[in-house]
Amino acid sequence: MGKYERLIFFLLLAMGLLPPLLTDYWERVLTLSLMLSSLSLAQNILLGYTGYPAFGCVAFFGIGGYTTALLMKDLGLPFWVSLPIGGVVSALFALLIAPPLMRLKSHYFAITTLALQLALGELVANLEFTGGAQGINLPIYVGPGGYLIFFYLFLLLTIFAFLLNVYVERSTFGYALKAIREDETAAETMGVNTVLFKSVSFSMMALITGLSGGVYAYWITYIDPTSMFDPLLSVKIFVALLLGGVGTVAGPLLGAFTLEFLSEVLWGRFPKVHGVVLGLLIVLIVLIIPRGIWRR
């Protein structure tokens, strides 16, 4: 780790000391910010380092969330067992579809992942064992730490995602991803097994995103297809990345916190026009971000 990466790492650790100072409101805002951070860091591995924009990455949020919830509800497994399984199922599904999916590039790839996300949402809404459109109720968490546990879970996940980003930034594994981002044909001509590395990168994104979905499901205790496969969450991840700077380890964190705080302030100030302002904000960010930033 470089000097400034270590600084961010310690800042993240220090965030763990904050909760005693926080009101319920700020605890919620920070928890949401950390969730968006973990999702943006996950997408950063794929978009920032590998060059593939998975616009529908929330598909894996839903898979992770629903798998976790169903394991708890139907099989009675404890959360601590269900959550990792949810993450792994999400990652394996990604690994399975990556080879055909990642033959597509740019906005074709982006829109295909979005179609997957919406299709899975519709599927879940139509099946019975997933609770259909009514969704699933989960028991409320009672245990050590109370609801603060979710703050810490998202913090842990963010730290994990951050370390993965640092690894990609600095390792030879990361070189393969960057080579694919820069020029895929050249990369494979230079000996990089592009299908393998693309798929692994995609699965890493899906793993973190799936885990994030699992924690979220237990946090809000009630999940339905609309909340778990929400396209608005997808776009928030991308806007956070654009805002902070794609392809850097600090950018996703910066963007996620800024966007979540901005969003909270707007929500508080103008509850009625929140959607209108959010839409405007997205448009403005895309317009104002100078052309190079999405690739450093």
């Binding site: 776009v235 959607g275 959010l278």
Partner: peptide, 11 residues
Amino acid sequence: VLILTFGLDVF
């Protein structure tokens, strides 16, 4: 453009 038009759609 996808993100831009999505924002436009939300707006």
